[in-house]
């Protein structure tokens, strides 16, 4: 599995995985909130974005979609996508070519949604989710054999945990993902373990602070000089 990789590429693969997963995870949550806003809970969108530390205001379900996708906030999909694309360009040589093409297509889709004239509906969200699925699928098709693939996978898993901890999702599944993260990290450096030097109460209760243990391990994994 030994593969030469600059710290820049390793980091880009990791962040590409994170941004794609962030968009995917958030889109699923937006879909759920959109459905609730229609006739169950008008505040569902506000509550969701509060967990991302974002104050979002909307007047209808459709308006929520617009504000979530292209509002001026840290989770704006146009910006998230630009970050993903940038990381994909830097690590292009390590990405499946179909996956790369779909990242460019996904960027086109999200950028087209950023103009005020464009109308956004659930179809766009479905289309974006389909493209993300294709990206994961195309990349997984390579098989997780190389270091670059493990960095990509690691980014995806870390983001999954991040979202689950923010949203307070069920612990047993989060535990499983944390174990998967550890497997990926050990493939890259057998001497590292996210649970080493991590406070026991973090491991037992999984507060959001658990992310600190993960980040500390990744800092040891990718050595930037």
């Amino acid at each position: 599995m030994e593969q030469l990789l600059t710290a820049n590429v390793a980091s880009s693969m990791y962040w590409l995985g994170r941004y794609l997963q962030r968009m995917e995870g958030t889109l699923y949550e937006i879909n759920k909130a959109y459905d609730l806003i229609i006739d169950v809970d008008r505040k569902a969108g506000t509550l969701l974005y509060k967990k991302f530390d974002i104050d979002i205001k909307y007047v209808s379900a459709m308006d929520f979609l617009h504000k979530a996708i292209r509002g001026k906030h840290a989770a704006n999909f146009g910006n998230l996508m630009l970050q993903a694309r940038e990381n994909a360009i830097i690590s292009r040589a390590y990405i499946d070519s179909v996956a790369f093409g779909e990242i460019i297509a996904l960027n086109e889709l999200f950028q087209s949604m950023q103009t005020k004239r464009s109308h956004i509906d659930y179809n766009d969200l479905d289309k974006a989710l389909s493209l993300i699925m294709i990206i994961w699928g195309a990349h997984a098709h390579r098989g997780h054999r190389k270091s670059s693939d493990y960095f990509f996978k690691l980014g995806k898993l870390v983001e999954e945990v991040d979202l689950r901890l923010r949203l307070g999702k069920e612990k047993s599944m989060t535990d499983l993902i944390l174990k998967e993260i550890n497997v990926a990290i050990k493939m890259l450096n057998p001497e590292l373990d996210i649970f080493d030097n991590c406070p026991q109460e973090y491991i037992d209760e999984l507060p959001y602070a658990m992310m600190e243990c993960i980040y500390a391990t990744i800092d040891k994994l990718i050595i930037e000089e």
């Binding site: 990789l5 600059t6 590429v9 390793a10 980091s11 994994l221």
Partner: peptide
């Protein structure tokens, strides 16, 4: 390997690639 300048280092007149680890 695609590298930028700071991803290479010269030690004792030899050029080295800096791996992520």
């Amino acid at each position: 390997q695609l590298v930028r300048a700071h991803e290479l280092v010269v030690i004792d007149k030899k050029v080295y690639f800096k791996n992520y680890n």
